[in-house]
Amino acid sequence: QIFVKTLMGKTITLEVELSDTIDNVKAKIQDKEGIPPDQQRLIFAGKQLEDGRTLSDYNIQKESTLHLVL
């Protein structure tokens, strides 16, 4: 699992595989929060994550926290 922190300070827990693409992750956030993926920007280690890449491409591990910017 990974964590996604919103600017409102809310933390969302997502069940993911490290082979999941950023697209997949955004879809899971949409399922939980109702935010359309095209409005989501995910940040990790100061970098904006690109849709076609996977979590492992960015060296994101289990229990990592991503930041969601709208």
Rank of each mutant, 00 (worst) to 15 (best):
I35A: 08
I12L: 12
T13G: 09
I22W: 01
L66V: 14
L55T: 01
I43M: 13
V25T: 11
S64P: 15
L70E: 14
R41A: 12
F3A: 06
V4H: 00
N59K: 12
I60C: 09
K47A: 14
L49W: 01
I22K: 00
K32H: 12
D20V: 10
E17M: 06
L42D: 00
Q48P: 13
D31Y: 03
L14Y: 08
A45D: 15
I29P: 00
L42Y: 09
T13R: 14
S56V: 09
L49A: 09
Q30L: 10
Q40I: 03
R41Q: 14
D23W: 07
R53F: 05
T13N: 13
E63R: 08
L55Y: 01
Q39K: 14
L14P: 00
K5A: 14
L55F: 06
N59E: 13
L18M: 05
L42S: 00
Y58T: 06
G9Q: 11
K26S: 08
D38K: 01
D31F: 05
T13F: 11
G46R: 04
I2E: 00
N24P: 13
T11Q: 11
L70M: 14
Q61M: 13
I60K: 02
N24M: 10
F44R: 11
K26V: 11
F44E: 07
T13W: 03
Q48M: 02
E33V: 02
Q61W: 10
G9C: 07
F3T: 08
I35F: 13
N24T: 05
R53G: 12
G52E: 11
V25I: 05
G46H: 08
L7H: 15
I12E: 02
E17I: 05
I60Q: 04
I43E: 15
A45N: 15
K28I: 09
L55H: 00
D20H: 06
Q30K: 09
P37H: 13
K10S: 06
N59Q: 13
N24Y: 06
V4Q: 00
L66D: 15
M8I: 11
D38F: 02
F3I: 14
E33K: 01
S19G: 09
R53H: 06
L70P: 11
T21M: 01
Q1P: 00
E15V: 09
K5T: 13
K47C: 15
D51E: 01
N24S: 09
A45H: 11
E33S: 01
Y58H: 11
K32V: 12
G46T: 08
E63M: 02
S64N: 10
N59S: 12
E33G: 03
K47E: 15
L68F: 01
E15P: 08
V4L: 10
M8C: 14
E63T: 04
T54N: 09
D51Q: 02
S64V: 04
E33M: 01
V16L: 03
N24W: 03
T54Y: 07
V16G: 09
A45F: 08
Q61N: 10
D51L: 05
H67T: 01
E17T: 05
R53A: 10
H67S: 09
K10D: 09
E15N: 08
L55C: 08
I22G: 07
V69G: 13
T13M: 06
E50M: 13
L66M: 12
M8L: 05
S19W: 03
L49Q: 00
P36N: 06
I12S: 03
L70G: 15
L55K: 00
D31W: 01
V69I: 03
T65K: 10
D23M: 08
S19I: 08
V16K: 00
A27F: 08
L18I: 05
S56C: 11
K62H: 13
Y58D: 06
K26E: 06
S19V: 03
